[in-house]
Computed example of a mutant assay.
Amino acid sequence: MTAPKHFEVGPLQQRLCERRRELLAALHGEYGDLAGARPPEVLGPESHPDETASRKAHDVLRTALARHDSDELQQIDAALARIAAGRYGACVECGDSIGYERLVAAPYAVRCVSCQTAFEHRANRK
């Protein structure tokens, strides 16, 4: 399975690399305290219960966002590996071209629209 040659990979690779840098900065900066880089802010006993609940909800949201960014980073790394291997743009299911428009919308896509639709239907049945 080799990458389709009907489009230029360079601009998509550049977008992937730029997004990768953004995600790494966010994961090491904004979310760095989730990994223990910064100690969590401690609320005193005089803290209002609403403040404590709000802070906990905020922490849950930040953890979910960090997980989402980490997942996206893994998808980008996999796409960059497919570029290096000459397999970028080929559907992992059927081997057909994923399509330039789809790759512009989601540069780390691994399936063509037909195979992605079938994949989602199978996943929803479980």
Rank of each mutant, 00 (worst) to 15 (best):
R21K: 12
A81Y: 03
L80R: 00
R122A: 13
G29W: 09
A85V: 04
H58Y: 12
L16G: 00
A37V: 09
A37K: 14
G89K: 02
H6P: 01
P107S: 07
R20D: 00
V104L: 12
P4C: 14
A78T: 10
G95R: 11
V113P: 00
A123S: 14
E101W: 00
C91T: 02
S54W: 13
R15W: 01
V9M: 04
G36Q: 08
D50M: 10
G86Y: 14
E72S: 04
C94M: 05
V113S: 04
C91V: 03
G99E: 04
G99M: 06
D77E: 15
Q14H: 09
P4M: 15
I98W: 08
A66F: 10
D33K: 03
E51I: 06
C17I: 08
F7W: 12
C112S: 08
E30C: 06
V9D: 02
L73N: 06
V104W: 05
A3D: 02
E72C: 04
V110S: 10
L34Y: 09
M1Y: 07
E30D: 13
Y88F: 12
E101K: 11
R82H: 07
A57C: 01
L27C: 12
G32V: 05
L16T: 01
R87Q: 13
D33H: 15
P49E: 15
C115W: 00
A25L: 10
P40K: 12
A85W: 05
P45H: 13
P39Q: 15
L34S: 07
G86M: 14
C112N: 04
Y31V: 07
C17E: 12
V104G: 00
Q116M: 01
M1D: 03
R67H: 12
L16K: 00
R21H: 09
L23I: 15
V60Y: 14
S114V: 07
K126Y: 08
A85T: 08
V42R: 10
G89A: 08
P39G: 09
P39M: 11
K5E: 15
H6C: 05
E72P: 01
S70F: 12
K56A: 13
I98P: 01
N124V: 04
T2F: 14
L34D: 04
P49Q: 13
H48R: 14
G99L: 05
I76M: 04
G29Y: 11
A35D: 11
R102M: 09
Q75H: 09
E18Y: 06
